[in-house]
Design a protein around this nucleic acid. Structure first.
Lengths: 392, 392
DNA sequence: ATGAAAGCGCTAACAC
DNA sequence: GTGTTAGCGCTTTCAT
């Protein structure tokens, strides 16, 4: 464990600005003179030689017309040459592309979009304010799309159906090629209420309309995995602490867990209670189990927070994890599984992969290969110390 | 604590699809016939009466020209009428707007952008793969922008300077009106290496160029607050467990804490060690303090995870929180502060507000009121059980 | 293989 | 007040 003394005192210089409750430049007239032009960064003149730079827009932007002129060809030819596609002589193609590069030409995506009708951008509407699940999904979408030079336009509907509709229309007006709707849980949800002219895919929360395309995780499989993992660690008396009753995920995971247990000729030890997703619930449920003298050597907790509370209660009673009781969580939230001691084994929902897959699916649809129905992506177990079979 | 028995067994129906390691529709040729057109949702015909709907683009989209024709005015007049702005008779304005509404007209933002040179979209480049700090910032940006019908285009540069540059150019080619660069920590960073023709605002990680505009949090003030809070709870022997040495936040917070201590005629109890941001480091550092018989009745931990580990170690030795020792964390991560028992008092960096402010600032700049220099947004303390003064 | 010309849907002078 | 006319920067027939 690295540890170093940190530098001692210094004068306490800097102080915070804008200490008002509602700080912000927009709230008051800027104290600065309202200069007519936005700030601009200086820096890196284009990193190449200066072959005759023709004109340039007032903005400093080079258009295809500029390139064409400089290369001594027509606008149309320049356009073709840039796309490596139609019949252009290899010579001109090369020349145009070189001039374009030399002049620092950057195609104007807006104009391209207007001309072609495609924007190479997809719209993403999230309904999750906290972002626990949707963030990795969003990042996954971006990862996949960024590679293809597509971009994602983001809106946060905060779970409000009206706002969601408004945003969908808004994104559509921006010519997005497709829409990804990200939910905050795996409960099926009604389809968005817009006459979308582009493909739509639902991520995490599937659409209740089976004709729509949805990507979510396989919670039934996750429940099964959790139990199978515990059994593989040599545990046989397995208790289950479920999440919140209103969530389909809770039911799905219980269903999978029971199926796996049954398959091994077992059944859950003690009652399966649903109460919430929090550590507090984990503590309460575990104490209850203990107080009722339920004997278990493994427990599947339907969230990492529940597992946290469970481990707290176990330690409180002098029980050792994983020796006396192995604990497995769900969701695989980095900050919880890593913070616990021993570190928590957990079932990952692979939300990042859900995002990537949603992106691939929508691109496919845009390219004319739509998918339908709900795809259940398998979860995976991340083994850590809380279920180490060694000490069993 | 609510608790309900969950429904018993059901047949384990559904199974996961795509179990391959690299699942995805794009990887293989779709099994479905490649229909020429993307899927489209059905649903809600526009919720209004059917006054003579003239034409409509093949896409089903209504253009301003269609509206103009239907309303019996010229294209230009229709345009003006829609913007409530130039001289148009109230009558025509009303008539045009009504027909537009009736026909379900949605302006084409791409065309508007091309014509005006403004896109009403800002680009956001994040460098945070985990998203711990950038997610709330991002959501804050979106909140503020969404209200103004601006949209945000998102890219994830993963901390790679080259990728960041590529994305910046990419976004610029999409005519974004401004750029927000979100960092993963508060260490100053070199400015982006592009000749931006639009305003740029750095959020969380400030630019090292003082001429640039940056918004970050006031970690010095945060350090001060933490100590002042502990003192206000009646604690006087205060220890400090710092974060990772390579982070400016660690030094800033120590600096602020020492200043507050000095102001109260005190100084830190025991050595101030920097080691990391994890719970493991919190455990190790606290045990060390205890083993060295440092006597403290309050401890400021520079992250919530450290505080977690600290509380673990404290309990381990039979010490009571907050009775024997009050504990305060930094960052205010919901899942940690809520999961702990007792719940953790923490200093919030107000990342959501940083995002909102970045959005407001960039809008201001787009409107011709640029800001410069680093704005340090004050942090705030979220009091919870771990510092309840009652039992002190 | 290359170029001329007609838009994409909208805004913004400038005439009437 | 309202209409006419150019474009914004690019793609794309259709001639040549």
């Amino acid at each position: 464990m690295p540890s170093s003394a940190i530098a001692a005192d210094q004068p306490d210089g800097r102080r915070a600005v804008q200490p008002s409750a509602q700080p912000g430049p927009s709230t008051a007239q800027s104290a600065e003179p309202p200069s007519a032009h936005p700030q601009r960064t200086r820096s890196g003149s284009s990193s190449h030689d200066g072959s005759a730079a023709a004109s340039a827009l007032p903005n400093g932007k080079v258009t295809l017309a500029d390139v064409a002129r400089a290369a001594g060809v027509s606008l149309a030819t320049a356009s073709k040459a840039m796309h490596n596609v139609t019949r252009v002589s290899a010579a001109t193609r090369a020349r145009v592309q070189q001039t374009a590069k030399d002049m620092g030409y950057q195609p104007n995506a807006t104009a391209q979009s207007l001309a072609t009708g495609r924007s190479n951008a997809i719209g993403l509407i999230t309904s999750d304010f906290q972002g626990v699940f949707s963030t990795p999904i969003l990042l996954g979408v971006e990862d996949e799309l960024g590679v293809r030079s597509n971009s994602v336009m983001l809106c946060n509907a905060r779970g409000d159906a009206m706002l969601e509709k408004t945003y969908a229309q808004f994104l559509l007006s921006r010519n997005v090629d497709g829409l990804i709707i990200v939910g905050q849980d795996t409960n099926p949800r009604p389809p968005i209420d817009v006459d979308a002219t582009v493909p739509v895919v639902y991520a995490y929360a599937p659409s209740s309309d089976p004709a729509d395309c949805s990507i979510t995780c396989d919670n039934v499989g996750a429940g099964r995995m959790a139990v199978e993992h515990l059994i593989s660690c040599g545990k046989r008396r397995i208790a289950i602490i479920a999440g919140e009753n209103a969530y389909k995920a809770a039911h799905d995971r219980v269903q999978g867990a029971r199926a796996a247990l049954r398959q091994a000729g077992l059944q859950p030890v003690g009652p399966v209670r649903a109460g919430g997703w929090s550590a507090d619930w984990g503590r309460a449920a575990t104490r209850l189990l203990l107080d009722q003298h339920v004997e278990f050597d493994g427990v599947v907790c339907q969230s990492d927070a529940i597992a946290w509370g469970c481990m707290d209660a176990l330690k409180e009673r002098g029980l050792n994890v994983p020796g006396d009781v192995a604990v497995i969580g769900h969701d695989d939230w980095a900050h919880i599984v890593q913070g616990l001691s021993p570190k928590l084994t957990s079932i990952s929902n692979r939300t990042n992969e859900i995002g990537r897959m949603a992106a691939r699916t929508i691109i496919d649809a845009v390219d004319g290969h739509p998918h339908h129905g709900v795809t259940y992506l398998p979860c995976s177990v991340s083994q850590r110390e809380s279920t180490l079979p060694l000490s069993s």
